[in-house]
Design a protein around this nucleic acid. Structure first.
Lengths: 234, 234
DNA sequence: CCAAAAGTGTTGCCGTTACACCCATGT
DNA sequence: ACATGGGTGTAACGGCAACACTTTTGG
């Protein structure tokens, strides 16, 4: 922050962050989208929340600012995905975006998007399986495909790929659950992210044998039939 | 590229790429360092090659430019690691760096660094094992620890961590070998990256059973004792 | 024939899966 | 009592590691 000296004699790109806020609902991954109100090419399209990185702010500070100002969210599991620098990705000019994703349980998001017509929790649908990648589709609650601004479909595909890849060797999936959860909850989260069903006993033991979670001795209430035990992350 | 409209009313950071060019030699990971000749804080220190991203160049173009101009390398396995945006990481001003790493066989690098006293192939030493992370040390050929400019020690640690993590579920290690290689060559590469020894039969079969490599029918020449068969990546 | 390194066979361990079953609870 | 979902026992499979072993070459 002593801009007395010119660091580069060339015109520089702008730097922004884009943030994919993800949760699981109705058996599938969902992403929080925002309607652009620009008077330009992307006006009216849905897009990931984002914001420019100012010279006196770190990347993390900028992500937190966007998460709070644009989506009303104050904390979540945050992770950097990567940086996208294609020349024409933003029709307004040269913008390089550092992409982050946030994971949070559904309850923290519904309060936010309710009553705002510029925010939408959209279902993510990936047309691919396993190793490959590619763009992902965002679907409105009616089930119609939404056209996203910029390269955000590509980007959303990359987020899902990263998430699936890290799911079974990190505790990342638990960021989508409340502090106390049942094993069924955990399984549903994992199934929603992977897009396939898992066998119950295998899943249970995998979690327990790894020693990442701990039984609390408490049980869920209110449900019909036998209540399941509540667990928590160690 | 129609910068007619102001994208942001705030002062923007500069964007650079930093490139860790890695190879394996003498049983260990090595990185290509460059001596800074600035007249400022970092002058005289060793650092990763880097360069600013101009408004009309993509990130990939910039990485290729740096690799060619600064290190004389024309192709390699290239991968984006992440983006570093701490405020004071560059004492000259606010610079955000997108960090890449390149993997290439030793032979392509020795020709480059020979005869240039501003380039050095430094041994990487990581003071940690397994899951954890942290900064990595760069050692001169004499074995003395080099002080790196900026946050490059931290960054180098992150590169090694990523490399180790991806080593056994991607063919990334083969980027450090020539097109034809023996199984012993491959094992030495893997041992150098992981920093521990592997058992021969297990390693052989792991590679062969996965079907990633193919025997060529040719054999190495010139060595003493029994020649090993040459393999190639499928 | 010997040394050194290439390459193979056998065994056992361990994490994961599949399937069948028992258990606990609310209606 | 019964339906429903929670939770467990057991057996089989497959990847992987360790060890001992055989094979091939140069000297």
């Amino acid at each position: 922050m002593k801009p007395t000296k010119q660091l580069s004699d060339y015109p520089q790109p702008s730097v922004a962050i884009d943030l994919a806020i993800l949760t699981v609902a109705q058996g599938g991954l969902q992403v929080l989208l925002m309607r652009r109100n620009d008077a330009e090419e992307v006006g009216g399209l849905w897009a990931l929340p984002g914001g420019f990185v100012h010279a006196d702010k770190t990347l993390d500070e900028t992500v937190l600012r966007v998460m709070k100002e644009k989506a009303g969210l104050y904390e979540a599991h945050l992770e950097q995905l990567g940086t996208y620098g294609a020349l024409e990705r933003d029709p307004r000019g040269r913008v390089i975006s550092v992409v982050y994703f946030a994971l949070t349980p559904l309850q923290k998001l519904v309060a936010v998007s309710n009553g705002r017509d510029d925010l939408l929790l959209a279902r993510i649908e990936v047309p691919w399986r396993g190793e490959e990648g590619g763009p992902a589709d965002a679907l409105s609650p009616d089930g119609e495909k939404l056209q996203l601004a910029f390269d955000h479909e590509e980007l959303l595909g990359d987020v899902v790929k990263r998430l699936r890849g890290k799911l079974d060797y990190t505790p990342i999936g638990f960021a989508l659950l409340e502090r106390h959860f049942t094993l069924r909850d955990a399984q549903e989260i994992h199934e929603a992210i992977l897009g396939r069903s898992l066998t119950k006993p295998a899943f249970r033991r995998k979690l327990l044998d790894r020693g990442l979670i701990r039984a609390t001795g408490k049980f869920e209430t209110g449900g019909a039939y036998r209540p399941a035990e509540l667990y928590e992350l160690k």
